[in-house]
């Protein structure tokens, strides 16, 4: 009967499963590729593919209207992190032109239980997050650049992702209608 009292906490298990599976994937990739840059590229690509699909889920759950400026977008990105990873990054360090900002994470669910060996300092362990943001925003016609400024895994205090607006993607003209 004592077992009934210690039922598993579904939320916690889910995020741990995600973390651990992600770790298994990264270590598999490190085995597959000799070059760490290739691993970074793959992680980013996987994130990109996920982002493209996640945006649809996000839009259907939140029914949010079109964002008119980067500040709205930043709020939505923050909201998405809360929804999907249960973390609340802070938005800060806006550039004067308002086209660049940072997401700051106190803790990052993907890096729980993770320590980087010293010879892997150029591995972007959480590169998948950048890919996700890029993929998702591309589906709402925003081209952005996304990179890590700080990373707790590399000894920084916080994890900081920088997002820079590049341009608005215009709808392409369908082939044969020029």
């Amino acid at each position: 009967m004592s077992r009934q009292a210690t039922r598993l906490d579904a939320k916690k298990v889910n995020s741990e499963l995600l973390t651990l599976t992600y770790g298994s994937l990264v270590s598999q990739m490190l085995r597959d590729f000799e070059n760490i840059d290739d691993v970074n590229k793959q992680l980013e690509r996987i994130g990109y593919n996920m982002g493209m699909r996640l945006i649809e889920d996000f839009l259907s759950r939140t029914s949010s209207p079109r964002c008119l400026e980067m500040r709205d977008t930043a709020d939505k990105v923050q909201q998405a992190f809360r929804m999907y990873l249960n973390v609340q990054p802070t938005i800060s360090n806006w550039s004067a032109a308002g086209d660049e900002y940072s997401l700051i994470f106190d803790n990052n669910p993907l890096t729980e239980f993770v320590e980087l060996p010293p010879d892997m300092t150029n591995l972007r362990y959480c590169g998948i997050l950048c890919g996700c943001i890029r993929g998702a925003l591309e589906m709402v016609q925003l081209e952005v650049q996304c990179w890590f400024v700080q990373d707790q895994l590399k000894g920084d205090n916080n994890t900081e992702i920088r997002i820079k607006f590049i341009r608005r993607l215009e709808d392409a003209i369908p082939a044969g209608e020029d």
């Binding site: 995020s15 995600l18 599976t21 994937l25 996920m50 996640l54």
Partner: peptide, 16 residues
């Protein structure tokens, strides 16, 4: 929404 993440992630792993 966490399930969704895992499902997409799983299918990307399969893909990769």
């Amino acid at each position: 929404s966490e399930d969704q993440i895992f499902e997409y992630f799983h299918s990307e792993i399969v893909n990769y």
